[in-house]
């Protein structure tokens, strides 16, 4: 097999890289990981809201891409195939977590020394950064309040910037449903933000 330089591989499309990976070039897989690990992490964070969980999911997604490389067929875009794997993993984790019992540690009312614990952030943020962080937090919170059906499609469209066709493939929904859910998801998100009195998005 003729050796291909990393620089040459870098110029290839995702689908070409997958073909090279299928032929035994593991470097092609590493390049796909480099291309998608941050995007995938950001995407999965919308589902899990937990960096550790989504780091695990990203690793598991790439592991499955690695293991199932021969089941990938070029008729599908690589990103569509990979996001489908990631979504299925995120949904499984969500179901698993829902089944788990939550244990909360309460303050002991009989113990005068038992005070609520304060976790202090030692990073003092300037006003602008603080405001920006607060806005982002409100957005994150509102997004997590959307139902999963809406969240999935708006994240794929407005965060991951996938096409409607790709989203229809990933979510396994008709195109009309995808578009309708995206529009409703956006409008519902805005309602949630207005309820949280998020000033940046309220129109005069």
């Amino acid at each position: 097999m003729e050796a291909i330089s990393r620089a040459k591989l870098q110029q290839l499309s995702d689908e070409d890289l997958m073909e090279h990976f299928q032929s035994g070039y593991e470097e092609a897989f590493n390049l796909l990981v480099e291309r998608y690990q941050d995007r995938l992490h950001n995407f999965l964070y919308r589902y899990t809201h937990n960096h550790q969980d989504c780091e695990d999911l990203v690793q598991e997604t790439f592991f499955r891409v690695f293991r199932s490389r021969h089941s990938y067929e070029r008729i599908a875009k690589f990103s569509t195939w990979m996001y489908t794997i990631a979504i299925n993993l995120a949904k499984s984790l969500y179901k698993k977590k829902k089944r788990m019992t939550t244990v909360t540690i309460h303050k002991d009312p009989d113990d005068s020394e038992d005070r609520p614990m304060k976790l202090e952030d030692d990073r003092i943020l300037p006003d602008d950064s603080l405001h920006e962080k607060m806005c982002m937090d409100e957005l994150e919170k509102a997004l997590m309040e959307l139902s999963e059906d809406f969240r999935e499609v708006v994240v794929l469209r407005d965060i991951q910037q996938l096409s409607y066709e790709e989203i229809a493939d990933i979510a396994d929904l008709p195109m009309g449903t995808v578009k309708s859910r995206i529009n409703r998801g956006r409008a519902h998100l805005q309602e949630l933000l207005e309820n949280h009195v998020y000033p940046g998005t309220i129109s005069a």
Binding site: L139, N183, R186, A187, I202, S203
Partner: peptide, 8 residues
């Protein structure tokens, strides 16, 4: 929907 898209 437009404002929601801007927020996203």
């Amino acid at each position: 929907a437009i404002e929601g898209k801007k927020a996203l």
